[in-house]
Amino acid sequence: MSKPVYDRTHHAKMATGVGDPQCFSGKAGDAKFKVGDRVRVRDLPDIFYTRTMTYARGLEGTVVELVYESPPAENEAWDNTEVSEWFYSVVFSQHDIWPAYSVGYPNDTLETEFSERWLEAV
């Protein structure tokens, strides 16, 4: 049986001198959400790999920035970089994340990123 040929440096070649995620810039098409939109984090099944934290699933938050375009982590983990998506930075109220968050700090927040597939409009 012959060994499959696989170029383990192809991602390096793609990103060298350009940067990652810059090398995926312009590949995601139109963004579905804009700054200020209210979004909910979907609770998709985890297959092998994800970077969407358990604590964020099902939460509603506000888009504060369209950060970059990139293949989602779930695909990139399989070395599938064919399809890119917009990534969004989303801010949540700490009180929405942790039911027992200290009383008296109603303004405290948490900010983190999601690829478009993980978000739905509220």
Partner: peptide, 8 residues
């Protein structure tokens, strides 16, 4: 505001 560096 906690920034959780979970992606790129």
């Amino acid at each position: 505001r906690v920034a959780d560096s979970n992606q790129k």
